[in-house]
Computed example of a mutant assay.
Amino acid sequence: MIRSILLSAAAGLVLSACASPALRGTGDLGVVVERGTGSIQVIESQKHTALARLTGLGDLSHASVVFSPDQRYAYVFGRDGGLSKIDLLTQRIDHRVIQGGNSIGGAISQDGRLIAVSNYVPGGVKVFDAGTLRQVADIPATALADGKRSRVVGLVDAPGQRFVFSLFDTGEIWSADFSQGNSPVIHRFKDIGQQPYDALITADGRYYMAGLFGEDGMAQLDLWHPERGVERILSDYGRGQEKLPVYKMPHLEGWAVADNQAFVPAVGRHQVLVMDSRSWQQTATIAVAGQPVFVTSRPDGRQLWVNFAYPDNDRVQVIDTETHRVIADLRPGPAVLHMEFTARGDQLWLSARDGDQVQVWDPYTLKRLATLSASAPSGIFFSSRAQKMGY
């Protein structure tokens, strides 16, 4: 009798184990934004496959994504003010709130506890509990003459439980320190230059740099020494002498640092600019096929992959960072919007919006490995971003 009970219990455990979903990690997972349908695809890089499509995420025309420290949750920032928390393992929407009227990105705090969203409307930054998406802080931007508030751009996370961001309309950089709780200490830096449109933070979290659309140059804040204020660097960076139409503003995220060199896209020029990453002085220019949008570095720093604004947005050029030579001129398809390397650099994923494709490339052989169908794809984000500052 006892033996039959034990056998029955053992059989039940086996059946239960067979019915349970297979365990897996999240290190090879990511998301593809489908801007045309307000949806995302959950993807895995190892097998080049799409695991699920999640819909109902609103306006994703300029969406960006950050990840929780355990790489399980993706936070999607929609242009319509939507903030969505996605569970990559269960492949469902965990929480979703509408927190503003027009948003332009966000960041997750150093400890993963807070999610910050930068808003055009209403101008400012709102901060949320990462677990519940309950609002815990509101940081209104500087008021304008018409009663509206400045648009906020270039929001990044920084060491010491800080968020740093720029005010487009009033030419400011603000640092919000949340190290003592949910009532931040704000440090404001004024007159940093005209129309900061995007920003980056160096991989070590020391330098915050805002690109300026209204004038040549960049604004740099040394977060080790904020008492020194904001300095102007790269005086030739910007629209330049040849006033070309700017069809799409370049993005500073993903810029490359290799062999004490930094590479950034030029605004309104067919150039990638090179500067010394110690002195922040320009040292060279690299001629490219069009106006660069992203200058994305392979993780080992040896290659740059560059995509372009219209009418050259069907091209991607690959640059050797040691020689500054263009070593490949690829034609992946119409409207290449975004590129993302896997964490160890064995794959490069890119979105071809007007071809409804996501492509996977081997960056060493420059051969295409796979193609996935997607509806007007734009941003591609892997969960390995969770371990990077400013991503």
Rank of each mutant, 00 (worst) to 15 (best):
L13W: 06
A74I: 03
L57R: 00
I98D: 13
H95F: 10
L114P: 02
Q91Y: 08
G106K: 00
I98A: 15
S118E: 15
S64I: 02
A145W: 04
A19L: 14
Y73A: 09
A50M: 13
R72D: 10
V121H: 07
S45R: 07
E44T: 12
R24F: 15
T132D: 03
V66A: 09
V33R: 03
A50C: 11
Y73P: 05
V32E: 09
G147T: 01
L29D: 00
G36S: 14
T132K: 09
R79I: 08
Y73L: 06
L88Q: 07
H95C: 08
H48E: 11
H62R: 15
L54N: 03
G101C: 05
A50R: 10
D94Q: 15
A141F: 08
E44V: 11
Q46H: 15
A10K: 11
G101T: 01
G56E: 07
V125F: 02
A116V: 04
S118W: 06
S64V: 04
V66M: 07
S109E: 01
T90I: 13
F77G: 04
D70F: 04
V31W: 08
G36Y: 09
L133Q: 06
F128I: 00
I108K: 01
P122A: 10
A22E: 10
L133N: 05
S45E: 03
R134P: 02
L57M: 07
A17N: 04
G25K: 05
G124Q: 00
G106W: 00
D80S: 08
K85M: 05
L15E: 06
I98Y: 10
D59W: 09
R79D: 11
R53I: 09
K148A: 12
A17Q: 04
D59H: 14
T132H: 10
L29Q: 04
T26W: 01
G147K: 11
G105N: 03
A145R: 12
I40D: 00
T26L: 01
A143L: 14
V121G: 07
L29C: 05
I43H: 06
V121Y: 07
A9I: 15
A143T: 15
A22H: 08
V66N: 10
Y73G: 04
H48V: 02
A130K: 03
S118R: 15
L60I: 07
G106F: 00
G78S: 11
A17P: 00
Q71D: 07
G82E: 05
R79S: 14
G124F: 00
A137F: 05
Y73M: 12
A52T: 12
V117Y: 00
L83S: 03
Q110F: 02
